[in-house]
């Protein structure tokens, strides 16, 4: 099956006063339609930048893509013009941003923002749900339809009394309900791909459970494809089918979720799993990963994990390990594993 999304060897730099920050150093990531892929890794490893490269929302400058390709449904994203990009974003990608500032505007009601999102999506493309297709309505009719669609989106995302609450301002919503509104907005364009960047990080655990359940049910109901970004391995274990682990600008391991937790191959993945306080770890039994995440201006040569790796070999200090197959549907970028035979 053709990939819905294919990020291939993506390199991204930021030019700053301090120097060139080498943020992405060859990211490879593929998604098929219907995938629910978790993208995990610690602060600064490049999860958000990888995700933002798809709707091409990385500020350039200071950002600069120096190598690599991003294809969506076979179309080359990086060579599109800005107006083509606008239509692409409206029609294909729904995004929940990590940065709350870019999310809901406190000065406008939910209705204004949600109806806008629906109208924007309609203005950008023909791809609207069936019942709007084929007639050219008046502006008033369009707004009314958009309003109905907004209420429907609120129902879909589990917001009770959407027809009344749509007139409320964001501050009148609780944290969990605001997150539902954001999901509704991201779904306004009936996207092929939903990118959710840390959608539950700021929420309490009982609310997190509600939102994760919502995402799972949307996947079932709408056949959504989801890229779920999180630093919480537990969230991945609960919600995703596949998982890609990033470290310092690269995907260093990828596999089905169960396989990753049962049979992690990359030393970083192993360290990451061992660092989570789990059931049955007795006092003193938790292992951290020694050292710190690398500086991206002057990153370590070779495998960027080598200064912290308990199994480092000579070759790791000079050469960059390619991703190799380490099992069925399981790949890792580490010299401990021989190249595909």
């Amino acid at each position: 099956m053709a990939d819905l999304l294919n990020i291939d060897n993506l390199h991204l730099e930021f030019h700053t006063y301090d120097g060139v920050v080498k943020v992405l150093a060859g990211v490879d990531l593929k998604m098929q339609r219907g995938d629910v892929l978790g993208l995990v890794g610690e602060t600064g490893c490049g999860k958000s930048m990888t995700a933002l490269s798809v709707p091409r929302l990385i500020p350039m400058p200071p950002g600069k893509i120096t190598a690599g390709r991003v294809t969506f449904n076979g179309e080359d994203i990086l060579s599109k013009t800005e107006s083509e990009m606008e239509a692409f974003r409206a029609r294909h990608v729904g995004m929940i941003f990590q940065d709350p500032v870019t999310n809901l505007n406190p000065l406008f009601t939910i209705r204004e923002q949600l109806v806008d999102a629906v109208l924007y999506q309609r203005a950008q493309g023909q791809k609207v749900p069936g019942r709007w297709r084929g007639f050219l309505p008046s502006v008033r009719q369009m707004r009314k339809d958009a309003h109905d669609r907004a209420v429907e989106l609120m129902r879909l995302t589990g917001i009770p009394d959407g027809d009344k609450r749509i007139y409320d301002y964001p501050h009148q919503f609780s944290g969990g309900m605001r997150q539902r509104v954001l999901i509704a907005m991201a779904l306004a364009g009936d996207p092929d791909l939903l990118i959710a960047d840390e959608p539950t990080t700021a929420l309490d655990v009982t609310i997190q459970a509600q939102i994760l359940r919502l995402i799972r049910s949307l996947v079932k109901q709408l056949g959504l494809t989801v890229l779920l970004i999180t630093h919480n391995l537990g969230v991945v274990a609960r919600s995703c089918e596949r998982v890609a682990v990033m470290y310092s600008g690269r995907v260093i391991e990828e596999s089905p979720v169960r396989e990753l937790f049962k049979n992690p191959k990359h030393p970083y993945t192993r360290g990451l799993i061992a660092a989570v306080p789990q059931k049955d770890i007795s006092r003193g039994g938790l292992e951290g990963i020694p050292g710190m995440i690398p500086n991206l201006i002057d990153p370590p040569a070779g495998c960027r994990f080598h200064p912290r790796c308990p199994q480092v070999m000579d070759i790791c200090r000079s050469a960059v390990p390619p991703a190799v197959s380490v099992g069925a549907d399981h790949s890792a970028a580490c010299f401990l594993y021989p190249e595909d035979a």
Partner: peptide, 24 residues
């Protein structure tokens, strides 16, 4: 709360109690 802990263990099948509403 205990049932909602996202454990990093995909085999840990636990009945998840999803609470209605929110604190606020």
């Amino acid at each position: 709360l205990i049932s909602a802990i996202p454990e990093p263990d995909p085999d840990m099948q636990r009945e998840e109690i999803i609470l209605r509403g929110e604190l606020s």
